[in-house]
């Protein structure tokens, strides 16, 4: 049987992320999920500041460029006035968990009914590889030149644990893009999050472990191995809450 390569029509063309970057894979998974769920025409994305901005040239759906850290607040505002649309934020870990932590946690706490996509690469990619809240202990960045220490910066932030304490959230999962199986699983998580949203169940979030070869100063393949090793050891992959929220 002949194989056909199917590209969702919401993929605008070649993306502009660095070679080996995980963002490109995540964007593709979102595009496929939207197409398969029949939501390509009503989807609205609140785009964060960071390498996430490059979604503007990658994804052919309605999008808004939000202030740094505020994409989840914008998404909540959009969803509140257009409850029939599929609304999601697309944010890096710096955007969502450093400057935008309040907007992130309170969107979940207030049960805002959109989906938050967090691409966690453990660094501030766009600004040149400074430490983020998710930088691992011992990891060298331009602002932790001897490696992150617990003494100076505490332990890496685990948003799934924080969200997990909020009983009203509808769906939570942590995926990864470091190998084919995890890519497929991550797509399933994204679809389930979108479905929970469209069922009106409540807040949903998928955090995705993603490589930044440029600022990790690693080859793409080595970056994938790093996620398979130390990154996923600290940030366990899998579904955290399913069927929660108002369906529970």
């Amino acid at each position: 049987m002949a194989m056909t390569k199917k590209i969702p029509d919401t993929i605008k063309g070649a993306n502009t992320f660095c070679p080996g970057c995980g963002h490109g894979v995540v964007v593709r998974l979102i595009a496929e999920a939207l197409e398969e769920l029949g939501h390509a025409d009503d989807a609205i994305c609140a785009v964060a500041v960071g390498c996430s901005c490059l979604v503007n040239v990658a994804l052919g759906i309605d999008k808004i460029g939000c202030p740094h850290g505020r994409a989840s607040a914008c998404a909540a505002g959009i969803k509140r006035v257009r409850p029939g649309n599929l609304v999601f934020s697309y944010q890096g870990d710096g955007d969502s968990l450093s400057i935008g932590l309040a907007e992130t946690v309170y969107s979940a706490q207030r049960n805002e009914k959109f989906t938050q996509i967090i691409v966690n690469n453990g660094v501030f990619g766009m600004t040149g590889g400074q430490a983020s809240p998710c930088t691992l202990i011992g990891q060298k960045t331009t602002t932790t030149v001897d490696g992150r220490s617990v003494n100076m910066s505490g332990v890496p932030l685990d948003i799934m644990k924080m969200f997990g304490q909020i009983e009203s959230v509808a769906y939570l999962a942590r995926g990864s893009v470091h190998d084919a199986q995890n890519i497929l699983n991550t797509k399933r998580y994204i679809k389930k999050a979108f479905e929970a949203q469209m069922a009106g169940a409540g807040f949903s979030c998928v955090e995705i472990l993603s490589p930044c070869p440029t600022n990790w100063h690693m080859e793409p393949v080595d970056s994938m191995e790093r996620i398979a090793g130390v990154v996923s050891a600290y940030y366990p992959i899998g579904e955290i809450v399913t069927g929660g929220g108002l369906n529970a």
Binding site: I64, C66, G77, A102, E103, R110
Partner: peptide, 25 residues
């Protein structure tokens, strides 16, 4: 729709989203 947000920052940004979606906000 009414939201008492966690701060004025969250408030103005919810308004940004709602207004960008066409609502008087």
């Amino acid at each position: 729709s009414f939201a008492q947000t966690s701060s004025e920052i969250e408030g103005i940004n919810q308004v940004l989203g709602a207004a960008a979606a066409g609502q008087r906000a």
